[in-house]
Computed example of a mutant assay.
Amino acid sequence: MTDEHTISTVQLNHTAVYARDRRASAEFLAGILGLEVGRPFGPFLPVDLGSGVTLDYYEKRDEPIQSQHYAFLVPDREFDGMIARLEAAGTTYYADPNHTDPGHTNDWFGGRGAYFEDPDGHNMEIMTRPYVRP
């Protein structure tokens, strides 16, 4: 028996992103990436990445939030706009994950990339080419 919802490969569907203010954090990231914040789903506020994956922001006000890393493969034609939105938001971006080269982007793997922090200290990355893995 075949189910129309059966998939042939493992796919990431969603992940929870802890935030002190789920609305502010979701709107920040959605604004930088040129996306929209979805309607609340229970305690979650989703940002739909357009690839069948959502980042579901979950408010966690009473505990420290441990920084996580989220990397987004973005279209090359939209990269400059994202950098411009970071600059307009007054958010420093960096060429490297350790944030030692402010105001610069990288050209790794024949593409472009940058790192920045969201309002909760998560280390976000935008890149136009996926990493080449051995």
Rank of each mutant, 00 (worst) to 15 (best):
T2F: 12
D3K: 15
D3H: 15
D3N: 15
D3I: 05
E4S: 09
H5W: 10
H5P: 00
T6W: 08
T6H: 10
I7H: 11
S8I: 09
S8P: 00
V10M: 11
V10K: 06
L12M: 15
L12F: 12
H14Y: 14
T15I: 12
T15G: 06
V17H: 01
V17T: 09
Y18R: 08
Y18D: 08
A19Q: 08
A19D: 08
R20A: 14
R22N: 11
R23V: 15
R23P: 00
R23S: 11
A24Q: 15
S25F: 02
S25R: 05
A26R: 07
E27D: 15
E27Q: 13
E27Y: 01
F28Q: 07
L29T: 08
L29N: 04
A30T: 04
G31K: 03
I32F: 02
L33S: 02
L33E: 09
G34E: 08
G34I: 05
L35D: 03
V37Y: 02
G38Q: 04
R39E: 11
P40N: 08
P40V: 06
P40M: 03
P40T: 08
F41I: 15
G42L: 09
P43C: 01
F44I: 09
F44Q: 13
L45E: 11
P46C: 06
P46N: 04
D48C: 12
D48S: 14
D48K: 10
L49D: 01
L49F: 02
G50T: 07
G50L: 03
S51D: 05
G52E: 09
V53E: 05
V53F: 11
V53D: 00
T54M: 05
T54E: 13
D62F: 03
E63S: 03
P64D: 13
P64H: 09
S67M: 12
A71F: 04
A71P: 03
V74F: 11
P75I: 04
D76R: 14
R77D: 15
D80L: 02
D80I: 00
G81W: 12
M82H: 07
A84M: 05
A84Q: 14
L86E: 05
L86A: 10
E87C: 01
T91M: 07
T92N: 00
Y94P: 01
A95K: 02
P97E: 03
P97W: 09
P97A: 11
P97K: 07
N98F: 06
H99T: 06
H99A: 14
T100S: 15
T100A: 13
D101T: 13
D101M: 05
D101Q: 14
G103P: 09
G103V: 08
G103S: 08
H104C: 07
T105R: 08
T105I: 15
N106I: 01
N106T: 02
N106A: 05
D107F: 04
W108K: 13
W108H: 08
F109W: 13
G110S: 03
G111W: 06
R112L: 03
R112D: 06
G113C: 07
G113E: 05
F116V: 06
F116M: 06
F116P: 03
E117L: 15
D118R: 11
D120G: 06
G121N: 12
N123L: 14
M124D: 01
E125T: 08
E125D: 10
I126K: 06
I126L: 12
M127L: 15
T128N: 07
T128G: 11
T128R: 11
R129Q: 15
P130Q: 13
P130R: 14
Y131C: 00
Y131F: 09
V132G: 01
R133E: 13
P134Q: 05
P134S: 12
